[in-house]
């Protein structure tokens, strides 16, 4: 009994030590953003003499001016449009492709199915950093560098983490729904688009939100293949190098770039976090 009480006490102490560490870590994550946010309401001159305090006079000038900054000739509003276009387009195409692949591989048997599935899993693990050069050459040769089409095509792959998540979902979806529809005369396309795909909407939404956040934040693809189609994630880096002397303006632009993601996260926080956990396990 005494040992148990002792154990419980030491467990409590450990818990509170970790609680303190978690508080410190949480502050380290939130404080930088709060610091940037507060400083975005200062003028350039006030920021230099008052780096860590609250603004003497709150001003929206940086937020207004940041909307007029141009990176590679593109304003923040246009960057938003590019980001939105790529996010919606890439997510939709990627989801469509992953869903189709996952459905076929989980519900239909055909020669080579097992081999392709295994190959898809295995190749995800092979380091292909060197393929960047060939990919760049291909894009260059067929005129896809700096085009919207080039970026959309990149996202049309059917294999990847989205495929794995949706494969698991479709595999557990009963085929009896399809059989009932077949008896009523429905064809394969109708069964997929009218019955099975609508039933997969919760899974598609979850995977879609995660992919959309990934596309919105994607820096690498734009940096490599479409630096002229500046998105907000890519543009912020350029803005920092152009406007580095007026940091409050850079802070305002940064805050503008993360607002949409934070709104989406606030609305779908549970879906995002739960599915990330599951994705981690399945991956």
């Amino acid at each position: 009994m005494g040992n148990r009480v002792k154990r419980e006490k030491s467990d409590e102490i450990v818990k509170w030590v970790f609680f303190a560490l978690f508080v410190l870590y949480a502050i380290s994550l939130l404080y930088p953003f709060l610091w940037c946010f507060i400083n975005s309401f200062k003028t350039k001159h006030e920021f230099i003499r008052n780096i860590n305090g609250f603004p003497e006079k709150w001003t929206l000038i940086n937020w207004e001016e940041s909307l007029e900054i141009r990176a590679n000739g593109i304003t923040i509003a246009q960057m938003y449009l590019n980001s939105a276009f790529f996010t919606v387009g890439c997510t939709f195409l990627g989801m469509f492709s992953s869903s189709a692949t996952a459905y076929i591989f989980s519900k239909y048997d055909f020669r080579g199915r097992r081999a392709v599935y295994t190959a898809a899993l295995v190749i995800m693990m092979i380091p292909t950093t060197g393929s960047m050069a060939a990919m760049y050459r291909l894009y260059n040769n067929i005129g896809l560098i700096n085009t919207y089409t080039g970026i959309l095509i990149t996202a049309m792959g059917g294999f990847g983490s989205g495929f794995l998540l949706l494969f698991g979902f479709y595999e557990n979806l009963s085929w009896t729904y399809a059989e009932a529809a077949q008896i009523d005369g429905a064809g394969h396309f109708r069964i997929y688009f009218r019955i099975m795909m609508p039933m997969a909407i919760p899974a598609l939404t979850a995977v879609g939100i995660l992919q959309a956040i990934g596309h919105w934040n994607d820096y690498f693809t734009i940096y490599m293949y479409a630096p002229e189609k500046v998105t907000i994630a890519y543009g912020i880096q350029i803005i920092n190098s152009l406007e580095g002397v007026n940091l409050p303006k850079v802070f305002a632009a940064m805050m503008l770039s993360i607002i949409p993601v934070l709104v989406v996260f606030a609305c779908f926080q549970k879906v995002i976090m739960n599915n990330t956990s599951i994705g981690g396990i399945k991956g």
């Binding site: 930088p32 956040i213 934040n217 994607d218 912020i236 880096q237 940064m254 770039s257 995002i272």
Partner: peptide, 10 residues
């Protein structure tokens, strides 16, 4: 959920 660009900047 925040882009690597913003994270590295802050």
């Amino acid at each position: 959920i925040i882009s690597v660009t913003v994270l590295t900047l802050v």
